[in-house]
């Protein structure tokens, strides 16, 4: 299963990448929203893990564009965010996200949680 991990913070990206790799995912990374869109178009991942706060294009805008493009609208998007407030979770869900994972996440169960959200 291929997952796109969009995260601007290199350390967090590393932890998440290792964690997901350990869980058996093929991980494609991006440092911002623009890059993420390019990689999605190129790699056609099965699931997208989006950091909310990113330079150039944030997770919100990236998600909006993914959902607006019929080619990518069907790919589940899961937000990875330090903002775990109800309002933001509700906003993410309203954008069509499959779920929200708060930071700091549990590195041992990250892949499992992603799979749970993908399964609905």
């Amino acid at each position: 299963m291929t997952i796109l991990l969009a995260e601007d913070e290199p350390d967090v990206q590393l932890i998440a990448r290792l964690s997901l790799k350990k869980a058996g995912f093929t991980v494609v990374t991006a440092g911002n929203g623009v890059e993420a869109l390019e990689r999605v178009a190129a790699e056609r991942p099965d699931v997208i893990l989006l950091d909310w706060m990113m330079p150039d294009m944030d997770g919100f805008e990236t998600c909006r564009r993914l959902k607006a493009d019929p080619a990518t609208a069907g790919i589940p998007v899961i937000f990875l965010t330090a903002r775990v407030q109800e309002a933001e979770v509700a906003r993410a869900m309203a954008l069509g996200a499959a779920g929200c994972i708060g930071k700091p996440f549990d590195a041992l169960t990250l892949g499992q949680r992603v799979l749970e959200f993908v399964a609905g």
Partner: peptide, 14 residues
Amino acid sequence: LRTPLTSIKGAIQL
């Protein structure tokens, strides 16, 4: 604070 904590926690866990 959450961002570095994510790295620390994840690193230790891994």
